[in-house]
């Protein structure tokens, strides 16, 4: 395995983390909520793929998309909107509670054991490019990350919903005073974060073919870590943080002696602690539209 091969692996793992981090960062940017239930948006989507197994794949993906967007909107409508003006700690605890509730509801529905589905097995086939053997899904992951990050940046910087989101993010009260329908803008942010979650679901399930009601948690944790490393509240920082965590994970996978492999995550989190000690504001202290005071 040469260096280029490793870069591709790191980028594809990092891509998934970056997408997760972007979804978390977007919601945090707009309403200051660290949404720990975000991993559950990814998880419930996987079970939709399980239920739609055998369906022509574009319809299956469409079904996931519709279900997860509605699920995310419902979580905002039924839960987060009720505590909109609460302090950030309260919001975070509420999202924890919601996360646990959804996980255990899915345990009741589907059991806590791993379920498997053979979704799009073809994209796991390796492709040879210039002597490198690359899994198709890795390329998809990289492409999806680049496309969605760019699309998100365009939406936020150049569309009406984008500047309204930035206005709500900076000063929710003043946004209402100039006539911004903040509930609608926040719902749009949840819907966009759901689209990011669906992308992660599809790629994750295509790659691993398995799911449990708890698999969203570790993704949320890593996505959260990525946002913290990148500078919580900065979207470019979130994407970069995701890639860095991905790269670090891949690197550790290769470098660690095999008896330390099971503790790979411990090393990742140790690196996070070091980053936070050295740069508490995150790696990128951008003057971005998302920076919160």
């Amino acid at each position: 395995m040469n260096a280029l091969q490793m870069v591709i692996d790191a980028a594809s793992v990092g891509g998934l983390y970056a997408l997760t981090a972007l979804g978390l960062g977007l919601i945090f940017g707009v309403i200051g909520l660290v949404n720990f239930a975000y991993g559950e948006y990814i998880m419930v989507g996987a079970y939709v793929l399980l239920l739609t197994a055998g369906m022509y794949w574009p319809f299956a993906i469409l079904a996931v998309l519709i279900f997860v967007i509605l699920f995310a909107l419902a979580s905002d409508w039924l839960v987060f909107r009720q505590v909109r003006r609460a302090p950030p700690e309260t919001l975070m605890i509420v999202s924890f509670g919601l996360s646990f509730m959804i996980q255990h509801f899915y345990v009741v529905l589907f059991g806590s054991l791993t379920r498997t589905v053979n979704f799009l097995p073809d994209i796991n086939r390796s492709i040879e490019i210039g002597g490198l053997r690359v899994a198709g899904v890795s390329l998809l992951q990289i492409a999806a990350t680049i496309i969605l990050t760019a699309a998100l940046a365009l939406v936020i910087n150049y569309t009406k919903i984008g500047y309204q989101m930035r206005a709500v993010s900076e000063n929710p009260r003043m946004a209402r005073l100039v006539g911004v329908n903040s509930n609608r803008i926040i719902a749009a942010a949840f819907a966009i974060s759901a689209i990011l979650a669906v992308t992660v679901t599809v790629l994750f399930v295509a790659q691993t073919g398995s799911m449990t009601p708890f698999f969203g948690v570790s993704l949320t944790m890593i996505g959260f870590v990525a946002t913290v490393i990148g500078g919580l509240g900065s979207l470019p920082g979130c994407a970069l943080g995701g890639f860095l965590v991905g790269a670090l994970t891949t690197l550790l996978q290769m470098m660690l002696p095999s008896d330390l492999q099971p503790f790979r995550e411990a090393f990742v989190f140790a690196a996070v602690i070091i980053v936070l000690l050295v740069r508490p504001q995150g790696l990128i202290a951008v003057r971005s539209a998302w920076e919160r005071v």
Partner: peptide, 13 residues
């Protein structure tokens, strides 16, 4: 809105 430019501030209005 300090992080929006002048034109965007008008559009938000």
């Amino acid at each position: 809105f300090t992080k929006l430019n002048v034109h965007e501030n008008l559009l938000v209005g």
